[in-house]
Write a protein that binds this DNA or RNA. Structure first.
Length: 279
DNA sequence: AATAGCGGCAACCGCCTTAGC
DNA sequence: TGCTAAGGCGGTTGCCGCTAT
């Protein structure tokens, strides 16, 4: 068996993209839009794999991308969403307009993870690292164990009554091997947790093949418990790309990821000589 | 000033799901 | 119904720049 390579490996360039390649790809995509990625390199005059083009575009060239480090609000949201969704970076990224899954994944691995460990929180389970030293009474939820003085505020929106958490048959149906990062008391709609519809998902994702996984909403999930979270997890939020998490850009100006401003940013980008573009 | 070590991030790889035939 | 191509995802790698010695 074995899959065919996604593209003809012969003559396909790899490694860092040059300004010239970026220019070609952006020119092509802004002119023709996103179509068949496999055809893009040929049509754009690039010696790249279509997959590589897609990644370059989605992770770096897309005009609506924000640049720079995640601000505190975004970081906080990532932590919160990670507690609920686990390593579903694309899902998390979908809640942060202008941010990519790759960017968030990298930021998690290089910054947030260390920060949480420093705070005594397990970045995988989001539970205290020294759990045995803490009685359940002291620990209604992991957020309450946040060390004083921490600059990361884990939202206090997980205080779900215990009877609703563990009496739930769905929660107890989790496969034993499911060492996923999703604590059982998380209010996530099933469709967000299930990997059935979100494409991808490697084997290590531990997606339960359990038949109890259905499209029915998670009985644990209640928007009333956390209106803010429910909004963040809603499609309405997703569709509103003018959402602005950032307090300010590096130059002090406020980000406003409208198409116009995004293009303005794009045109202003010096990294790959975009000033030479003919749009 | 040279260099070794480290951290951050862009890019690649392999696997999975989905759509089309 | 089965096969294949394509898109998408998460994990991992490797390069590059910064810092410490």
């Amino acid at each position: 068996m074995g899959r065919q390579p996604c593209c003809d490996k012969l003559g396909v360039k790899k490694g860092p993209w040059t300004a010239e390649e970026d220019k070609k790809l952006v020119n092509f995509l802004l002119t023709h839009g996103q179509c068949c990625w496999r055809a893009v390199p040929k049509l754009a005059g690039l010696r790249r794999c279509g997959k590589s083009c897609r990644l370059r575009w989605t992770n770096y060239l897309r005009p609506d991308l924000k640049r720079g480090l995640l601000n505190d609000a975004e970081e906080q949201l990532v932590i919160d969403l990670h507690a609920r969704l686990g390593n579903r970076w694309s899902k998390i990224a979908a809640r942060l307009p202008g941010r990519t899954d790759n960017e968030i994944k990298n930021h998690w691995n290089t910054h947030i993870k260390k920060k949480l460990i420093k705070m005594g929180i397990d970045p995988i389970t989001h539970e205290p690292l020294h759990k045995q030293a803490i009685t359940p009474e002291e620990m209604p939820c992991e957020a309450s164990n946040q060390p004083a003085g921490s600059d990361v505020n884990i939202p206090q929106n997980m205080d779900i009554p215990e009877h609703e958490v563990y009496s739930n048959s769905e929660a107890s149906n989790q496969p034993a091997g499911l060492d996923m990062n999703i604590p059982r008391n998380m209010n996530i709609p099933d469709h967000e947790i299930s990997s059935n519809s979100d494409g991808g998902g490697s084997a290590s994702e531990n997606s339960p093949s359990n038949e109890s996984q259905s499209a029915e909403p998670n009985p644990n999930y209640s928007e009333e418990d956390d209106p803010l979270l429910s909004f963040i997890l809603s499609d309405t939020f997703l569709e509103d790309l003018t959402w602005d998490f950032s307090t300010s850009s590096e130059d002090g100006s406020t980000d406003n990821p409208t198409e116009e401003n995004s293009l303005a940013w794009f045109m202003d980008c010096k990294d790959f000589g975009v000033q030479d573009f003919e749009l």
